[in-house]
C-alpha cells in the first residue's frame, strides 16, 4: 500500500519535472530558463528522497543534503551574471 503511494507520488513529481523541462526548453528569455532550472533542482532533491525511500537506504539522503546546500549557488551565479546592476 505504502509502496504504491510512493510510486504514485514519484510519478506526479515526474510530471512536475517534465513541465519544468518544457519551460526550460522553450522559455522566451534567459531568466525563464534560470527559473525553470531552479524548479528542476528542487524537484531533483525530491527525487533523491524518493530513491532513498524506494531503496530503503538512508545514506542516499546525504546526497540530497549536499545538493540542497549547493544547488542554489548556480542559480544565484547565473542571475547575478545576467544583471549588470549588482
Amino acid at each position: 500500500m505504502v509502496d504504491l503511494l510512493i510510486i504514485l507520488a514519484a510519478i506526479l513529481a515526474g510530471g512536475a519535472f517534465l513541465f519544468a523541462l518544457w519551460r526550460f526548453l522553450l522559455g522566451p528569455t534567459r531568466l525563464d530558463r534560470v527559473v525553470a532550472f531552479d524548479v528542476l533542482t528542487i524537484v531533483s532533491i525530491t527525487f533523491i528522497v524518493f530513491a532513498a525511500l524506494i531503496e530503503k537506504r538512508g545514506i542516499y539522503l546525504d546526497v540530497a543534503l549536499v545538493y540542497a546546500l549547493l544547488s542554489f549557488l548556480g542559480v544565484i551565479a547565473i542571475a547575478r551574471y545576467l544583471g549588470d546592476r549588482f
Binding site: M1, A16, F19, R23
Partner: peptide, 30 residues
C-alpha cells in the same frame, strides 16, 4: 499511511508548481 498521503500531497504541489511554470504569462508570476 499518513506518511504516504503526505508524500502524495507534496508531489501534487510539485506538479501544480510545474503546471504554473508552464501556464503563467509572465516571468514574475512564473
Amino acid at each position: 499511511f499518513l506518511g504516504g498521503l503526505s508524500l502524495l500531497a507534496g508531489s501534487a504541489f510539485l506538479l501544480f508548481g510545474g503546471l504554473g511554470l508552464v501556464r503563467m504569462p509572465d516571468i514574475f508570476n512564473r
